[in-house]
Amino acid sequence: AAQLRFTKSPFSTSEEPTPLEDVTSYNNYYEFGVDKGDPAANAHTLTTKPWTVAVDGLVSRPTTFHVEDLLKTVTLEERIYQLRCVEGWSMVIPWVGFPLSDVLHRVEPLGSAKYVAFETLLRPEEMPGQTGLFQALEWPYVEGLRLDEALHPLTILAVGLYGDMLPNQNGAPIRLIVPWKYGFKSIKSIVRISLVEKQPETSWNRQNPREYGFYSNVNPEVDHPRWSQATERPIGEGGLFAKRKPTLLFNGYAEEVAHLYAGMDLRANF
């Protein structure tokens, strides 16, 4: 993989990053299988070049970006972020990417745009999880953010990991990272970004609305109906005898993002 050029960012955490080996071998990417090891085993078949991302909907200038061209026009930054999975484990990951707002500003959202809808690739011939009798989710995978969440400086499109291009199992060639929300909000291998007026459907909410809300902000006070979210298991620390650590409100990014939810009932809007 080609080494990327990037600058450092004040948004990075000073926490020690999770080893690359763990970040690239322990993945939830159901398009390649439901076991944590499946994406690393199966995702190499995915063709990521050429790759285009259509940005459309309520915008003045709908554009289809070629990822290679897009990369020539953005300033890449390293963002070392906390990642908290809804399942109760966490990692610290050095992503390389750029603010999603860079792209959104280029297409000029209309005043009527209130939400941003995202869509992952649908390509059953290269994504074994999208075929077969028993499928965990409806395809393509879709996600969504409120426009202000999407424009927040912490929200990035990542194209790299540990200074290199993104491995396929981590969502190559381009994926979303929203560090204050549970990992499943950070949709992988994006092909479409649409600005819309109404709150878009999201894959896990569609699958089980009682358990996975639209917001899915990391919150130790609001338990998943079937398990506690108060603590998390850091991956790659201490092996078999690793200790849990407390989960932080908004995954530790409360200072940056809490104002987005001022006055909202975070229990009702989980």
Binding site: D22, Y26, K36, W89, R233, G239, F241, A242
Partner: peptide
């Protein structure tokens, strides 16, 4: 395998 750290990224869960 867990003790010699060969149980993958989340050894406790795997065990």
């Amino acid at each position: 395998l867990g003790v010699i750290d060969q149980l993958g990224a989340d050894p406790m869960k795997t065990l």
